[in-house]
Design a protein around this nucleic acid. Structure first.
Lengths: 227, 227
DNA sequence: AAAACTTTGTGATATAATGCTCATAGTTAA
DNA sequence: TTAACTATGAGCATTATATCACAAAGTTTT
């Protein structure tokens, strides 16, 4: 217990996956799970599961495994999910923005959509059930401060970036989840994470065309699943 | 020019990003770009850009850089985007499904939404403008074959997985883009890629709480910790 | 046409992530 | 209470990915 280096980003993402699976186990009344079972279910290596967890402490019991409830609570703490995170959506008038604004799954994980913004004056002022009126980008900075919003979700079209970029980066928000089709860079102040639907489809396309040319994209054994 | 190993998945994803940026450059009338400029714009290392491209051939000209048009065309070929890919959406009645069904950006990149499915009998038969009626999951396999659909996008709620899994995996489709909040595993026949919105938010949350505890997520300093 | 630049492509090197192995701690059964 | 199991945690090996650094190729300047 001396070193404990910075965990890889991949570890953090897996923790989130573990967490969801543990929640399911808890609902099903499962009390304890081993790294082996967890790994098998998620198509990972058991050693990797243990290593992921060991970055943050010793949560397991030798000869037994991990307590589902305890491990879940630890991961909640590690990911900072015990505290509710307020988010706002920019581009709330668009289809993706609307879908995310009305998605109920976030609250279950302790994220709350507190405000909606759009640059289109035609829809500013429209009420969205359960959240409030769509606000103008001009009020972004003010509202972020007033409401204590920590995360912005961007669902704007590519063309809108020019006028949105500065207001977003200067809004006082700490993190941005960007769905817009351009890469936004993180700065000292704002941690940007880009999710690009087109890129996801295009990687699939690459693998499809590999197959077409007769080369398997999966050079490793396929992930098998039973249960 | 002897070895040419399998390019990492990360390279493929970056190619997609390069492609979009190159399209923008072309529209702006830029003829040539160097790895250095490309890298700077996308916050990457120039050597990485060159290596990414070198996996697939020698596209650059020393002392000059890369021809924007030529490089773009090469990447289109590498990613298999010259051929139109037909996709279908399962869970078309949900908000995310609807948003994706009506999203016009896919066609611009040569993906076409050709069919919509939902398990809810109440909405099966409803017409969606520009695509057609919402179909029953029971017809999935038939329609996939008839229309030559290659990719399925899953936007179903977690609870629906039990009844959707087998029909999807046996539909004859080659790839799945799964937005549902559970991890689906790839098989020999079906290449699954999972995109998990909650995981994205939770990684951001982790980094927010790192900041709160005074440690920068960008630091490389070891984080010693006990419990 | 030679010298001074520029930029690619790649071998060598560094860093990071994953997987293997086993001593150790804990449990269960006799 | 001892022996046979089980599963963690951690050191080490391996693999994968990213970066450095430079020779080779091409361009521009003098």
């Amino acid at each position: 217990m001396v070193k404990k280096l910075v965990p890889p980003q991949a570890t953090i993402r897996r923790l989130s996956i573990y967490l969801r699976y543990l929640n399911g186990l808890d609902v099903d009344g499962v009390k304890v799970i081993s790294s082996h079972d967890l790994a098998r279910r998620l198509a990972l290596n058991p050693a990797q599961v243990r290593k992921d967890l060991a970055y943050f402490g010793e949560f397991g019991k030798r000869g037994v495994g991990y307590s589902v409830k305890k491990l879940r609570d630890h991961i909640v703490k590690i990911l900072g999910l015990q505290k509710m995170r307020k988010i706002a959506i920019i581009g709330a008038g668009g289809r993706l923005g609307t879908a995310l604004a009305l998605y109920t799954g976030f609250e279950r994980r302790n994220f709350k959509v507190c405000a909606l913004f759009d640059k289109d004056p035609a829809i500013v002022g429209n009420e969205v059930e359960g959240i409030g009126n769509i606000l103008s980008i001009g009020d972004l900075s003010k509202v972020v401060k007033e409401k204590g919003i920590e995360i912005l979700i961007l669902t704007i079209p590519a063309a809108a970036i020019k006028e949105i970029y500065d207001p977003v980066m200067l809004s006082g928000v700490k993190a941005v989840l960007n769905f817009a089709p351009f890469k936004m860079l993180s700065t000292e102040e704002v941690d940007v994470h880009n999710v690009d639907l087109t890129t996801e489809l295009e990687s699939l396309s690459y693998r499809l065309s590999l197959n077409e040319s007769g080369i398997s994209p999966l050079d490793k054994a396929p992930a098998t699943e039973e249960d």
